[in-house]
């Protein structure tokens, strides 16, 4: 097996463990490249079926093309799609002008936690990777969240030999991270190998492209001429700038992600 085959096989193993051991299960689909790879892996793991719903936490500030593409792919692949918004916070005028971390917390973290509780999920599959930022580099594959959706990062359970955290009190849930050991280039090489669908915001137009997708007001484009996947791979092989450098919320504070993620952020 080569490197990509090994990554694929391990992620499929994790998805099947989650489906076998966790009761109500959903997959967080952010429309970005990572969770779209996750979607593809789920199709492979379950032989074309996806035996759980796909969830999009929609802040209403997403780049508009993302919503169009989301609905198109969901229809094409026959996905059971759940779109959830923090309606109350939006009605009260929540937005990035109130502070980026406040906004992320309300429209992403709170919305996600609200949906998890409403639907009684025991497990949420999330496409985070260790190489994205520090607090994710310390994640477990099966990562427990308590009734308040908090992550007790200083006291994580042991995880060894493919034996994951599958025992937990009722009301807690597990964040399942099948892509934890993938890195950004792996994702791109896999997308290239598989010829799978991907939103075109990642490809350069007028000398700019998105490297990471999020909400329109807080996600920056990078200068780039990469219009194809091989060009993106070539570009990434030579850069030393971090993937999330264009994500404004990360730069708010040295421990911004740790704090957001402690409270349930993906």
């Amino acid at each position: 097996m080569n490197h990509l085959q090994a990554l694929e096989a391990h992620s499929i193993f994790i998805l099947r463990e989650a489906y076998a051991k966790l009761g109500r299960l959903g997959l967080l689909w952010s429309i970005g490249k990572d969770s779209t790879v996750l979607l593809w892996l789920a199709k492979k793991a379950f032989f074309g079926r996806c035996p759980f719903p796909f969830i999009h936490v929609d802040t209403s500030y997403k780049i508009p093309e993302m919503i169009v593409w989301r609905d198109k792919i969901a229809a094409e692949l026959g996905l059971e799609l759940i779109v959830h918004q923090n309606v109350k916070a939006l009605a009260e005028g929540m937005g990035p002008q109130q502070g980026r971390l406040v906004c992320c917390r309300a429209l992403k973290t709170d919305a996600l936690n609200e949906m998890t509780r409403e639907r009684g999920f025991d497990g949420l599959i999330v496409g985070v990777r260790r190489d994205e930022e520090g607090s994710r580099s310390k994640e477990r594959v099966f990562s427990e969240r308590n009734r308040e959706d908090e992550w007790d990062y200083a006291n994580q359970p042991p995880e060894l030999w493919g034996q994951f955290k599958t025992d937990f009190p009722q009301g807690h849930h597990i964040r399942v991270h099948p892509l934890l050991q993938w890195c950004e280039l792996d994702i791109w090489r896999y997308i290239e190998r598989e010829g799978m669908p991907l939103i075109d915001l990642y490809f350069a137009r007028d000398g700019e492209r998105y490297r990471s997708l999020g909400c329109a007001p807080c996600t920056g484009r990078i200068k780039s001429q990469a219009r194809t996947i091989p060009e993106i791979i070539a570009e990434l092989e030579r850069t030393s700038v971090g993937e999330r450098a264009g994500r404004a919320q990360d730069q708010e504070d040295a421990y911004a992600m740790q704090k957001l993620r402690r409270d349930g952020y993906m």
Binding site: R221, I222, K223
Partner: peptide, 11 residues
């Protein structure tokens, strides 16, 4: 929004 992150600057 465009940040000043320039990938081509570090080749």
């Amino acid at each position: 929004m465009t940040l000043s992150t320039d990938l081509t600057a570090d080749l």
